[in-house]
């Protein structure tokens, strides 16, 4: 009997083992990016931009060219790369501290200029690498290292909704929020990431995929429990859905 391969590591993902904590969503999201690059057959002209945060070493995990950007500046760095090499497929991979706090100006303006690039935004409502501090996306009442009594809206404001904000701009062509809390949603996330790269390949413009994710270590939960917590607590605050799809890429699929 012959055996057919159903699932294996995508070619664009390097063989380097991830440094992420057990159960961390970054690994799956990295894989989805690599699968999209492979499916679109653009690996030989893809340039990634790694952020500062847990995914600072993202460049180790892909088999294509990479820049490691200063904290929050990935969209500006990506702008420089894309303008220099318009034939490249350029993407940034950023967390919520990087994109929604220190890099708010860079992401908003790259989106507003309609840079023909793809942004993968991983929102797990906490700073991972520095040890679990409050993020702009932390939930009200969420206890973190820097909000030990729970996030208080009166002093720390409310969770920031980046997808909704970016969708108010005219230039972006695709803004969507997905999650990978179960396999059905994971397959939708895979499709969204593929759409976002496909739009860039076609020269359509700025595409933004927010992935609502877990941080088991800093949430203090087992991975499966963290996904349950995400479903019950994060999704009501960060509802899944597509906020902008100028070219109807989801319907066409």
């Amino acid at each position: 009997m012959t055996m057919k391969k159903v699932f294996s590591r995508p070619a664009s993902l390097s063989k380097t083992p991830f440094h992420y904590c057990p159960g961390c969503d970054h690994g799956v999201i990295h894989r989805l990016v690599a699968e999209a690059i492979d499916e679109l057959e653009v690996a030989d002209r893809t340039i990634g931009v790694a952020p500062v945060g847990c995914s600072v070493f993202a460049y180790d995990y892909f088999n294509f060219d990479f820049n490691q950007a200063p904290h929050g500046r990935a969209p500006a760095v990506a702008t420089g790369i894309k303008r220099t090499r318009p034939e490249s497929i350029v993407f940034t991979y950023q967390g919520d501290g990087d994109l929604a706090a220190i890099g708010t100006a860079e992401i908003i303006h790259a989106a507003n200029r309609g840079e023909n690039m793809t942004v993968v935004f991983v929102n797990n409502a906490i700073y991972g690498m520095t040890g679990g501090q409050m993020a702009p996306t932390s939930l009200i009442g969420m206890k973190t290292q820097t909000s030990p009594y729970g996030r208080d809206a009166a002093t720390a404001g409310h969770p920031i909704h980046m997808s909704e904000m970016i969708a108010t701009l005219e230039s972006p062509v695709y803004v969507t929020r997905v999650t990978i809390n179960n396999v059905a949603n994971l397959m939708k996330a895979k499709k969204a990431i593929l759409n976002a790269f496909k739009l860039q390949k076609e020269g359509k413009g700025f595409a933004f995929v927010e992935v609502v994710a877990i941080c088991p270590t800093n949430w203090g939960k087992k991975p499966a429990d963290a996904h349950k917590w995400l479903t019950e607590n994060m999704l009501p605050v960060f509802p899944l859905g597509t906020f902008k799809d100028t070219h109807g890429v989801e319907k066409a699929a």
Binding site: M1, T2, M3, K4, K5, V6, F7, S8, R9, L13, P17, F18, Y20, P22, G23, C24, D25, H26, G27, V28, R31, V183, L186, M187, P223
Partner: peptide, 18 residues
């Protein structure tokens, strides 16, 4: 392949009898 797709380490490969 639900297990393999869920694996954050991409540690699982799945084959199917043809």
């Amino acid at each position: 392949a639900i297990c393999a797709r869920s694996c954050p380490e991409v540690a699982i490969e799945i084959y199917k009898e043809e």
